[in-house]
């Protein structure tokens, strides 16, 4: 049984959905953060792939593309000790409160 990201040849007749969405600002910024951190030597493409592959399969299947990138960014920043879970949770909670 292949891992969830290893999709080649999985049995499906699902048509290709060719509708394209305009990227939200946060998606473009996640894309950019990965690239900026890469240039600073704080993140590698293969590390990011490995982080995405480590997501629980049911989450991998249902998350959008940049949601996976966001989850991978968090995994890598925690692992490298750049940020802590407590810091992210606290900042996240601040953002949850309407101004």
């Amino acid at each position: 049984m292949p891992q969830v990201h290893d999709r080649g040849g999985w049995p499906t007749e699902e048509p290709i959905d060719r509708e394209e969405h305009i990227l939200a600002d946060w998606e473009r910024r996640v894309d950019a953060m990965h690239n900026v951190l890469s240039e600073k030597g704080l993140r590698r493409t293969d590390e990011m792939r490995r982080a995405i592959e480590s997501l629980p399969p049911e989450q991998y299947e249902t998350m959008s593309y940049y949601e996976r990138w966001t989850a991978a960014l968090e995994i890598l920043l925690l692992e490298k000790g750049v940020l802590t879970a407590g810091e992210i949770d606290a900042r996240f909670a601040e953002l949850e409160r309407p101004e």
Binding site: P2, D6, G8, G9, D46, R49, R50
Partner: peptide, 10 residues
């Protein structure tokens, strides 16, 4: 058992 780039189907 970790990250690798050789698809299962091949």
């Amino acid at each position: 058992g970790g990250h690798f780039r050789t698809p299962a189907y091949i």
